[in-house]
């Protein structure tokens, strides 16, 4: 299993070069040279896929997230860590407008994706989600066959040419093909939890999005399944920009290039999540600049 994935990973590398070598434009002009965040990343300038500024969210008047500013860069895995209830998931769901239908959701500040305001006038949230895929905390396959789970979204999007091939590719990319190729017509609900979650990743990749958002994708799984998801992310990082919320610090340390630490901040009697520190993963775990980050990553926090 392990060796198989590694060989697959290496096969990808030539393709990566092609991708990163593509000409870029448009988005760059909108990325400001200077940033307002106090702990702005000093790393060499990559293209920002998301540029988030002063993002605050509240649900029915009670704040959930305040004053988050950060740039998420192309081609990296960015981990979001922090104690529960600090707004990690809320933050993630703001990136592809999954919060729109939540009752009483209000947002201030801005989220720019390739320079386009995600919450701007005329933006179609369906188009946003088509480009920014998402995998959820608990595996949520559709009550359909394995094949149809993967083929459903491409059919909706009229990506019907070579559909079988597309399904196979997606399942292979999610390291699930060998396990399900003989029962594609069976219900997806018969798969194990880990398999279901990989199916959900395959399903998200089937429409070839630009970004994958993962909301604690391994938290509902056993350690073996969790390890296989983690391995899968290693191979996927060459193709997608990945933002992953996790409560597992070892996991973040293993897979992420950048790590953002969120925590609860009190302002008056209201408590809301906010971004404390954002840096290279190594820096966050070995030389945190904020004492709160240090407390958390060394386990002194709750």
């Amino acid at each position: 299993m392990r060796s198989e994935s590694h060989s697959r990973g290496s096969a990808v590398i030539p393709r990566v070069r092609i991708l990163t070598g593509e000409p870029r434009d448009g988005a760059h002009g909108l990325v400001p040279a200077e940033r307002s965040g106090a702990r702005a990343l000093q790393a060499p300038e990559r293209e920002a896929i998301f540029d988030i500024r002063e993002l605050s969210v509240s649900y029915e008047g009670s704040p959930a997230l305040t004053g988050v500013s950060m740039r998420i860069e192309r081609g990296l895995i960015t981990a979001v860590i922090g104690p529960s209830g600090c707004g990690k998931s809320t933050f993630l769901r703001c990136l592809n407008r999954m919060n729109d239908s939540v009752r009483g959701f209000t947002l201030t500040g801005s989220v720019r994706y390739h320079g386009h305001d995600v919450y701007g006038a005329g933006v179609d949230p369906v188009e946003v989600r088509r480009r920014i895929g998402m995998v959820f905390q608990r595996p949520n396959p559709l009550p359909k066959s394995i094949y149809d789970n993967v083929a459903w979204a491409p059919r909706n999007l009229k990506m019907k040419a070579r559909l079988e091939e597309r399904v196979e590719r997606s399942l292979r990319a999610a390291a699930l093909w060998e396990e399900v190729k003989d029962r594609l017509g069976k219900s997806a609900l018969g798969l194990s939890g880990g398999q279901q979650q990989r199916l959900c990743i395959a399903r998200a990749m089937a429409i070839e999005p630009d970004v994958l958002l993962l909301d604690e994708p391994a938290s509902a799984l056993d350690p073996v399944a969790s390890a296989s998801i983690e391995e899968l992310l290693h191979t996927l990082k060459h193709r997608y920009t990945i933002v992953i919320v996790t409560h597992n610090m070892q996991q973040a340390a293993r897979i992420a290039d950048r790590t953002a630490f969120f925590s609860l901040a009190s302002s008056g009697e209201l408590r809301a999540g906010t971004l404390v520190e954002y840096n290279d993963t190594e820096e966050i775990f070995t030389r945190p600049r904020d004492p709160r980050t240090g407390d958390y990553v060394t386990g002194r926090f709750g």
């Binding site: 994706y113 390739h114 386009h116 179609d124 188009e127 590719r169 997606s170 070839e208």
Partner: peptide
């Protein structure tokens, strides 16, 4: 051998505005 390679005929241009167009 490379399942991650995109099926290029539908490749996304991420820099396009986020408005609905065409099929959508």
């Amino acid at each position: 051998e490379d399942p991650l390679a995109p099926l290029t005929e539908y490749r996304l241009d991420p820099a396009r505005p986020l408005r609905a167009s065409g099929h959508l």
